[in-house]
Computed example of a mutant assay.
Amino acid sequence: MRRKFFGKELLWGMPIAVGMAFIGEALALWLALEQPMATGLIAALAYLGPRGSEVLFMVRGEGGEGLKEERGCASG
């Protein structure tokens, strides 16, 4: 199913992107990143959103095992 660009989903997506931008700004300050890198981090987090960030950290922290379990794959 294809979504419209300007639809009611945009009303939910914009506040989430702004919230992730605030989180990215705080993370960039905590990591003491300079301006170009801080902007990239903020843009990446705003694009991923909360669900994408959760999956990214889950895969990174568990060595990829978390993603296999989420997909329902049997781990060897």
Rank of each mutant, 00 (worst) to 15 (best):
E25Y: 09
R2E: 09
F22W: 05
W12T: 08
E25L: 15
M58N: 14
Y47R: 12
E54F: 10
Q35C: 00
G40H: 04
P36E: 06
G72I: 12
F5E: 08
A26P: 00
A74D: 13
G66T: 04
K8I: 10
G76Y: 09
L41W: 02
Y47I: 15
M14E: 00
A26S: 10
G76F: 11
R60C: 09
L48W: 05
E69C: 12
S53N: 02
L11F: 07
L10S: 02
E69W: 12
A43R: 06
G49Q: 06
G66S: 08
M1V: 08
A43V: 12
C73T: 09
A26M: 12
W30D: 03
S53R: 00
Q35H: 06
W30L: 14
I23K: 10
F57E: 06
A46W: 03
G19E: 01
F22T: 04
A28E: 02
L41K: 07
F22H: 01
M37T: 14
M37F: 13
T39H: 09
P50G: 13
G64W: 06
L41M: 15
E62W: 06
M58S: 15
G52M: 07
L31Y: 02
F57V: 12
K4T: 05
K68C: 13
E65V: 14
R2F: 03
L31T: 01
G66Q: 05
L27N: 07
K4A: 13
C73H: 15
K8C: 00
L41Y: 03
G49K: 07
P36D: 04
I16L: 07
A44M: 14
A74P: 03
R51G: 06
K4W: 01
